[in-house]
């Protein structure tokens, strides 16, 4: 039983603006695995989050974490900017925050624990600062209950972002 109202069918690409809403508390979009499509998807998701019940700082954090997760998928699960593939993003409003389910049909994550990520170290010099790895640090710093499953040729990442109760602006 797929979690989404539309199954992930290889090669079937819908623009980020093609929205599927199965109920008032859920919002889904499909996007091709390109960096440019991520920009559109972020705008769509942020567009349904009611600005009156969510502060600008919270909105910025949500947008950032989603960008990091989607960038990782496009750059690592798909090795760059292919349009051969499909990413689905499902957002559900829960009492304890925003629950995200992000699924793709790209390559698997490396086995073992999810990456810890890297962060700047003020005790080290300029040349010792990391240029990569900030993404997973950000995801882990903000998201809760992060879980990853590889099954049936699909990756599924689920996580929650704590936010005040709000409604989706449909």
């Amino acid at each position: 039983m797929p979690l989404l109202p539309v199954s992930l069918e290889k090669g079937r690409i819908r623009p980020a603006s093609d929205l599927i809403r199965d109920d008032e508390n859920t919002f889904c979009i499909l996007l091709p695995p390109t960096l440019i499509a991520i920009r559109g998807a972020l705008a769509e998701v942020m567009g349904v989050l009611d600005p009156n019940s969510l502060g600008s700082e919270e909105r910025g954090t949500i947008e950032l974490v989603l960008a990091e997760v989607l960038n990782n998928i496009v750059l690592h699960a798909y090795d760059g900017d292919t349009t051969d593939g499909l990413i689905s993003l499902k957002l559900t409003l829960a009492r304890n925050g925003l629950q995200f389910t992000i699924r793709d049909d790209g390559g698997p994550m490396p086995p073992g624990e999810l990456p810890l990520g890297r962060v700047a170290d003020p005790n080290k010099g300029t040349m010792a600062q990391p240029e990569h790895g900030f993404g997973w640090f950000i995801i882990r710093a903000v998201a809760r209950d992060i879980a990853y499953i590889r099954a049936g040729g699909q990756n599924t990442l689920t996580f929650r972002i704590v936010a005040r109760p709000l409604s989706l602006d449909h």
């Binding site: 960038n71 990391p130 240029e131 990569h132 900030f134 993404g135 640090f137 950000i138």
Partner: peptide, 13 residues
């Protein structure tokens, strides 16, 4: 995002 931040670090180095 983290890629943009990483790019700034690359330029700094």
């Amino acid at each position: 995002d983290s890629s943009g931040l990483g790019a700034i670090v690359t330029v700094m180095k």
